[in-house]
Nucleic acid binder design. Structure first.
Lengths: 307, 307
DNA sequence: GGTCATATTTGTCCTAGACAACATATAAAT
DNA sequence: ATTTATATGTTGTCTAGGACAAATATGACC
């Protein structure tokens, strides 16, 4: 029953590896090894899909595909086991993971709500959501939860954060920041987390959804008078794509508008540090906003003093 | 400034037309007509991107690409003007469109909130959100609003509906329905609308995000004990893809689990009527849920009577 | 008007080659 | 010994033009 075969389009969609790459891997490394249907088209068994997904993940964390494809499935799985930091995982995250793996609808949302009220939004974000995101990603990676569980978790978090964000008192709205993701990037949770943090700092947030074309980002930033554009990057997209798109965006955007980029996708980006502000951490948002406000205040002070 | 050139990947991502199709159109119909960079690769001016987006839309509403590509941009735009039903557009929708086109952050969310409380969720969905979705899509289509405005609208609606859904009292949870979209489908608003309608009927809703692989939908439906799987299809994906995926899903899913499919993407689907319940309208949800409950009650009655 | 057979249209898949961008190894020079 | 230049891999994306089945349109006939 589980032995369905997938076409190359299916594999592209499900693994995130392009057709061209799939064909060139087959040609060069001898993997994957799809059989052919009566029409001579590639058909892949599901076990190869699993292996490809694993390879994609490992590759995104910096390994060379040419070496990965030579390894067996089990060897690949071993690679995924990071230096074990389970000691560092908060008890709450463990509990949430237990709920998640035990099936749907069993009170995940109410547990999250409880934690939110116990800790307050600020520490809920940094101490619960952020580590939990990581734990869920890791668990999927190791095959302990399915894509479905990940989606269910994401949807639940989205609900909780949306409700929380909506209940927050608006600050004075400075600085004004537009939040979105690059074309191709589908993960919106990081955006919501950033929106919450920024609203907590009193900043003005214009939350746009995911996948905004670059020209539209530019137009929006100008029309809405935002002085900062915030971009959230997961590591779902390759570093390559992220970097080239950020560079393009920087070129299109007026100099007066800053770019702030965060998320796991910008972790290893170093070379565009001077033109773009990179965030490895939600906590850095506080300092960054304060810095902007101070500069603005300083400028105003100078203006007054100079008059 | 706006005269940037796009690579074939950019065009694929931004227009939703695959590389292969772009190349084959060029070969067959002589459009698009990209120039080449020093490396011999296609580069497209932005005006061709706009035309391609338009063609994609018209094509999805049933026209032949081979005829569309021969037309000029202005002729294409004329085609988009549907039989004018602006008389049917409620005043509220007109007002919301005005707000949307007048820039960001100017009270769209508060207006929506007001309307929600005036009408109640039920009629807010059918009389405001549904027509507004259509109006926004149409306006984008005709070039009156940008993608950014559409995203901003979508994000705002998502917020309003999420908050509303979360505030709804849980019913008895029958029938239990899992909601998601097919792989490739990114629009989640229809899902939220359906979730609201179903919760209003007292049904149990397991809201999964977008783009769930078929095997995972099956696993989830079984594990969570859902008797119905609800799929929301926008017309962003081609009819082709939608139909083939739905057929695949029907084959994978146990017979006891029904498939309900709704959204503008299933409007013209007819041939799978007997195996899948198709919805053209939010209002049909009420009747469908009642029918399921009656059958269940009838079965129970028969069981009792038979004993 | 409806039903069937034939013709056209259309998207996706194929092969196999090329090349730039990046990473890494090796040699030369300070 | 450390930096700098050069060579060698490695990798993803792009190219061309051909093939074919599934979807759709056209026309003949009842």
């Amino acid at each position: 029953m589980t032995n369905c075969m997938f076409s190359i389009s299916d594999i592209e969609r499900e693994s995130g590896i392009s057709r061209d790459t799939l064909r060139v891997w087959e040609r060069r490394y001898g993997f994957p090894t799809p059989s052919r249907n009566e029409r001579g088209e590639r058909i892949y068994p599901d076990e190869q899909l699993l292996r490809l997904r694993l390879i994609k993940q490992l590759q995104d964390s910096g390994m060379q595909p040419g070496k990965l494809v030579k390894l067996e499935y089990q060897q690949l799985q071993q690679l995924t086991f990071q230096p074990d930091n389970s000691a560092l995982v908060p008890a709450d995250v463990k509990m949430l993971m237990d709920i998640l793996t035990s099936g749907f609808g069993s009170g995940l949302i109410s547990q999250l709500d409880t934690l939110l009220h116990q800790r307050g939004l600020r520490y809920f974000l940094t101490d619960v959501v952020a580590p939990m995101n990581h734990a869920v990603g890791q668990a999927w990676f190791e095959g302990r939860v399915g894509i479905l569980d990940e989606h269910y978790y994401a949807e639940t978090i989205r609900t909780v954060l949306t409700v929380a964000l909506n209940g927050l008192p608006p600050g004075d709205g400075n600085p004004k920041i537009m939040l979105t993701t690059l074309p191709g990037e589908q993960h919106g949770i990081g955006l919501l987390m950033a929106a919450c943090m920024l609203r907590l700092e009193g900043a003005g947030v214009v939350l746009i959804g995911v996948q905004t074309p670059l020209e539209e980002i530019v137009r929006g930033a100008i029309e809405s008078g935002c002085s900062i554009v915030g971009i959230s990057c997961s590591d779902y997209m390759g570093r390559r794509t992220i970097a080239s798109q950020l560079v393009k965006l920087r070129a299109l955007l007026p100099e007066g508008v800053a770019i702030w980029a965060g998320g796991s996708g910008v972790r290893t980006l170093t070379f565009l540090k001077d033109s773009i502000r990179l965030f490895n951490d939600l906590d850095q948002i506080h300092a960054a906003v304060q810095a902007v406000l101070n500069v603005a205040a300083g400028a105003k002070y100078e203006l007054i003093a100079g008059t």
